[in-house]
Amino acid sequence: MSMLSDFTKGIWKENPVLVLLLGTCPTLAVTSSATNGLGMGLATTGVLFGSNLVISLIAGIVPKKVRIPVYIVVIATFVTIVDLLMKAYAPPALYAALGIFIPLIVVNCIVLGRAEAFASKNGPVRSMLDGVGMGLGFTLTLTMLGVLREFLSTGAVFETKIITAWTTDFLLPSAAPGAFILVGSILALKNYSNYRKAVKAGKLYVPPKGLDCRHCNICSAHLEEDEK
């Protein structure tokens, strides 16, 4: 695979939210407004970049038996750094809105998933590209979802009213159930378009290789190696 596709695959083909279905907790919880989605996405991108880089560098010496705790320590270090940076330099309203979800990036499956599935097996440059690509894919999806939810509930985008006559908030999209409904609809649309594409080409629709449950390389890769 070329370097470019390492970077771009996270944005659409292997989008962490819409294809890998990772990191659903922050996706549903913080995207009640576009600003929050963007802030959360950028924070996660920063962590992904740092953790992927360091993990790809140390992967050669990490004992296999303790690799998960090692990855968690590395990720937690970067999350704490991002948290402190946001406390110091991010707008106070954004930091207050994201609150507990910044420390929770530690247990975000995207970060650990990329460490295990990509950074531990590839060199630092490709891992960095992968981290930033995945992070940007996450950021774009979260921002899009935030824009949708904010617009559907208040008629505003980035706290700026587009439809000025919209005075009473419609609460469903800004609450958790609305997020589930929207994410579900987007997933259905994406799968349907993939299915249509396959049918038009006269083929049977199969999920991207390595991404369905049987072939998912995130949790089974090391098991296969052990079996050998």
Binding site: I61, V62, P63, K64, V73
Partner: peptide, 24 residues
């Protein structure tokens, strides 16, 4: 180091990593 199963080496590895991260 990568395939070691020595209990003490594993513990030491984690301890050193934790220390580096704490200092940082």
């Amino acid at each position: 180091l990568k395939n070691t199963e020595n209990f003490f080496v594993l513990g030491l590895f984690l301890a050193v990593l934790g220390l580096i991260s704490a200092v940082l």
